[in-house]
Amino acid sequence: MSLDAATVRRIARLARIRVDDTEVETLKSELNAILGYVEQLGEVNVDGIEPLSGGAQMALRQREDYVTDGEIAEKVLANAPDREQNFFAVPKVVE
């Protein structure tokens, strides 16, 4: 598997990361190197082996349905780049 420049641009757009044209080639070879490294796993024969969902064979911990959090609007908004009263504010996005 090998990524082309267009795919690199598409991935960047989906992740909302700005990538200059000058960076595309570098990113392409770096990403391809990562993919190539991971693809070594393809050499292992996994016929008849169930996919594993996690390393630890333990059950998902579940919590009781109580309200134990929230009501901390000031803290939640503390790092917001912009706010309007107690709302987060972002550049206008309209359909």
Binding site: Y66, T68, D69, E71, V76, L77, F87, F88
Partner: peptide, 21 residues
């Protein structure tokens, strides 16, 4: 009472960003 993955209230409405963890 609370959200799927957090202990914040799942009640409709409320002051802006009040039911947020």
């Amino acid at each position: 009472e609370s959200k799927l993955f957090s202990g914040a209230s799942a009640t409709y409405g409320g002051a802006p960003n009040a039911h947020v963890s």
